[in-house]
């Protein structure tokens, strides 16, 4: 069931160097109980997409398009609507759990605040629910830990607290922006296991923003690859890894040391573009190994390469057979190396 329907989202910043279109006509849907991975490098617009949906961008940043949360448009929502929705229907966890918790309030107070703001229930019940939430995210002795301050928690435990707060009101949509990037690998594994379990338990739609394709493979059901403010490829997770169709996705997969078959990595030349100097046509064409004349001028639409309805969309002018051949050749190589 679709809980969030994003249509042609466009976010523009005014900078001294001119208008910067950080998100340029992005459309996708989030389904109940499924995890969508939004993947890209710095400046791809993945974080701005989430901030636009949460309406957390400063005034003066223009957000256009539609984002229908259970039919209610987030883009045109006023402050009162947003106060009601945030934390209740749509919640977010951030990369850095240290700066997202208030250091002068106890963890219990902060989790309870989230519950209190959206529910008129007696204090004892609020307290009970906060305790249950801490328990649900795997914090030992939750009753005692409620009285502790954020600095008494480790990084991984703080991220668990953030997740407990985000899920406290059982939101339809949970946005997780690089939730494990600041954590060590063994702690990351704990958080990924937790998210996988909670997805089943709470049945929220999760949008996971990450630059790490390994994390995507571990937890996502669907993937949208972003580059220069646009989605360049969108498909179920197995498809992305088994038959990627966009040259940028090929490059990302090729750049991963774990998928390398020889000593050299096939990296993507150049660097991701700055938002104020985005190239015309296909945004990836200056770095693309198979760019054609057409790619400089015409921006390719996001569509199904085979023309069929297999849920696999890409934005590339290359002929469908070429994409298929290259993508599958790429995918078959690394399996042996693991």
């Amino acid at each position: 069931m679709t809980v969030l329907d994003v249509r042609e989202l466009r976010t523009t910043f005014q900078t001294r160097e001119g208008a910067a279109c950080a998100v340029d006509g992005v459309s996708f849907t989030l389904e109940r109980g499924r995890v969508l991975g939004l993947v890209g490098e710095s400046g791809s617009g993945k974080s701005v997409t989430s901030l636009s949906l949460m309406r957390l961008l400063p005034r003066g940043v223009s957000v256009e398009g539609q984002a229908l949360l259970n039919g209610f448009d987030l883009v045109t929502a006023d402050d009162a609507d947003l106060r009601r929705l945030r934390g209740d229907e749509i919640a977010m966890i951030f990369q850095d759990p240290t700066t997202s918790l208030n250091p002068v309030y106890t963890v219990g107070w902060q989790v309870e605040e989230m519950i209190r703001l959206h529910n008129e229930i007696p204090r004892a019940q609020v307290h009970q629910r906060a305790r249950d939430m801490l328990g649900a995210v795997g914090i030992a002795q939750p009753a005692a830990r409620l009285d502790d301050y954020p600095h008494q928690f480790s990084g991984g435990m703080r991220q668990r607290v953030m997740i407990a707060m985000a899920l406290a009101n059982n939101p339809s949509v949970l946005i997780a922006d690089e939730p494990t990037t600041a954590l060590d690998v063994t702690t990351q594994a704990q958080i990924l296991v937790l998210l996988r379990r909670l997805r089943a338990e709470f049945d929220s739609a999760i949008m996971l923003i990450t630059h790490d394709l390994g994390v995507v493979a571990e937890i996502c059901d669907d993937v949208a690859v972003m580059y220069g403010g646009r989605i360049v490829e969108r498909a179920p997770v197995d498809e992305i890894f088994e038959s990627p169709r966009h040259p940028y996705t090929w490059g990302l997969l090729d750049s991963m040391p774990s998928r390398a078959t020889s000593g050299r990595l096939r990296s993507i030349p150049g660097t991701p573009p700055s938002l104020t100097e985005l190239p015309g046509g296909c945004r990836f064409h200056p770095r693309c190994p198979v760019a054609m004349e057409k790619c400089r001028t015409d921006a390719p639409a996001l569509r199904s390469a085979g023309g069929g309805d297999d849920g696999h969309l890409d934005a590339c002018h290359l002929a469908a057979e070429q994409k298929r051949a290259r993508g599958q050749g790429l995918a078959s190589a690394p399996a042996a190396s693991r």
């Binding site: 704990q190 990924l192 394709l213 493979a217 690394p334 693991r338």
Partner: peptide, 18 residues
């Protein structure tokens, strides 16, 4: 604990979580 960049292998693997 290192994520595997292959969704099928990742699903098949039972994670060892410290």
């Amino acid at each position: 604990a290192v994520p595997i960049a292959d969704p099928k292998l990742a699903r098949a693997r039972k994670p060892i979580v410290l």
